[in-house]
Amino acid sequence: MIYLAQVQKKGFLGKTGLRLIACQKSGDIWALVSETEPIVTTESNTFGEGILVLADITTAGQIRTINEATEWAINLLKQYLTKGLTPDFLQEQAVEIEQWRQSLTLQSQELSRRALELEARRDQLQELEEKLKKEQRRLQILAQNLKESEDESSNENGEEQERLERENTA
């Protein structure tokens, strides 16, 4: 992994160390390294104290290569500062992104609330539909009973009329 580090002199024995500042995650993405003890190495003896270097360090802490970071830092500054990517601009962008995130969160919550309301209304409509179907069945049964009653009544009236006619003719 590539690290941005600063060369530090260590003690009177002339040993030097690398104080790790940041590590490269991928491409142009870097993350700050929390304070750690400097990595003591003789390979950094050729660099003066305080110089920034790029060091390729294995996970076991072995240094593969060390190169001065001056050109890298200059290129980085040219690349970003000429495009207007100043710390203030980046901070403004971070604030704007946070506002968008909060807005999207609120919109998501509102959509969830509306979805719950729609679900409740759908349930109410289903209950009403069931009530209407039951009422329709009840009315059909009443209509059928009424018709049967009318038929019976009409049959009884017809029989009564026939009886009366027979009595009158007899």
Results as ranks from 00 to 15, higher is better:
residue 107 Q to M: 08
residue 107 Q to L: 02
residue 107 Q to Y: 02
residue 107 Q to N: 11
residue 108 S to L: 13
residue 109 Q to E: 15
residue 109 Q to F: 00
residue 109 Q to V: 04
residue 110 E to H: 04
residue 111 L to E: 11
residue 111 L to Y: 12
residue 111 L to Q: 12
residue 111 L to K: 08
residue 111 L to V: 06
residue 113 R to L: 10
residue 113 R to Y: 04
residue 113 R to G: 00
residue 113 R to N: 14
residue 113 R to I: 09
residue 114 R to G: 00
residue 114 R to W: 00
residue 114 R to D: 02
residue 114 R to C: 01
residue 114 R to Y: 05
residue 114 R to F: 04
residue 114 R to H: 01
residue 115 A to L: 03
residue 115 A to Y: 07
residue 115 A to M: 05
residue 116 L to A: 15
residue 116 L to G: 07
residue 116 L to Y: 09
residue 117 E to R: 05
residue 117 E to Q: 08
residue 118 L to K: 05
residue 119 E to N: 07
residue 120 A to C: 04
residue 120 A to S: 10
residue 120 A to F: 06
residue 121 R to T: 02
residue 121 R to S: 06
residue 121 R to N: 08
residue 121 R to E: 15
residue 121 R to M: 13
residue 122 R to V: 08
residue 122 R to W: 03
residue 123 D to Y: 06
residue 123 D to I: 10
residue 123 D to E: 12
residue 123 D to G: 02
residue 123 D to H: 04
residue 124 Q to H: 12
residue 124 Q to M: 06
residue 125 L to C: 02
residue 125 L to V: 03
residue 126 Q to E: 15
residue 126 Q to F: 05
residue 126 Q to L: 15
residue 127 E to C: 03
residue 127 E to I: 11
residue 128 L to T: 01
residue 129 E to C: 10
residue 129 E to Q: 11
residue 130 E to W: 12
residue 130 E to K: 06
residue 130 E to G: 00
residue 131 K to H: 08
residue 132 L to E: 11
residue 132 L to N: 10
residue 133 K to I: 12
residue 133 K to H: 09
residue 133 K to E: 14
residue 133 K to D: 14
residue 134 K to N: 09
residue 134 K to R: 10
residue 135 E to D: 12
residue 136 Q to C: 13
residue 136 Q to N: 15
residue 136 Q to W: 08
residue 136 Q to D: 13
residue 137 R to C: 06
residue 137 R to K: 15
residue 137 R to V: 04
residue 138 R to C: 03
residue 138 R to A: 08
residue 138 R to W: 01
residue 138 R to S: 08
residue 139 L to K: 00
residue 140 Q to L: 06
residue 140 Q to P: 01
residue 141 I to S: 09
residue 141 I to C: 02
residue 141 I to G: 02
residue 142 L to E: 08
residue 142 L to W: 04
residue 143 A to G: 03
residue 143 A to H: 05
residue 144 Q to E: 05
residue 144 Q to V: 01
residue 144 Q to T: 08
residue 145 N to G: 02
residue 145 N to C: 12
residue 145 N to I: 02
residue 145 N to D: 15
residue 145 N to A: 11
residue 147 K to T: 07
residue 147 K to P: 01
residue 148 E to I: 01
residue 149 S to F: 11
residue 149 S to Y: 12
residue 149 S to H: 10
residue 150 E to H: 11
residue 150 E to C: 10
residue 150 E to D: 14
residue 150 E to G: 00
residue 151 D to L: 10
residue 151 D to F: 04
residue 152 E to W: 06
residue 152 E to A: 05
residue 152 E to H: 05
residue 152 E to K: 10
residue 152 E to F: 06
residue 152 E to R: 06
residue 152 E to L: 07
residue 153 S to I: 15
residue 153 S to F: 09
residue 153 S to H: 09
residue 153 S to A: 11
residue 153 S to Y: 10
residue 154 S to L: 10
residue 154 S to G: 03
residue 154 S to A: 07
residue 155 N to K: 13
residue 156 E to K: 14
residue 156 E to V: 09
residue 156 E to R: 12
residue 157 N to R: 08
residue 157 N to V: 04
residue 157 N to K: 11
residue 158 G to Y: 14
residue 158 G to V: 02
residue 158 G to D: 07
residue 158 G to T: 08
residue 159 E to A: 05
residue 159 E to N: 06
residue 159 E to V: 02
residue 160 E to N: 13
residue 160 E to L: 15
residue 161 Q to E: 14
residue 161 Q to D: 14
residue 161 Q to C: 06
residue 162 E to T: 04
residue 163 R to G: 00
residue 163 R to V: 00
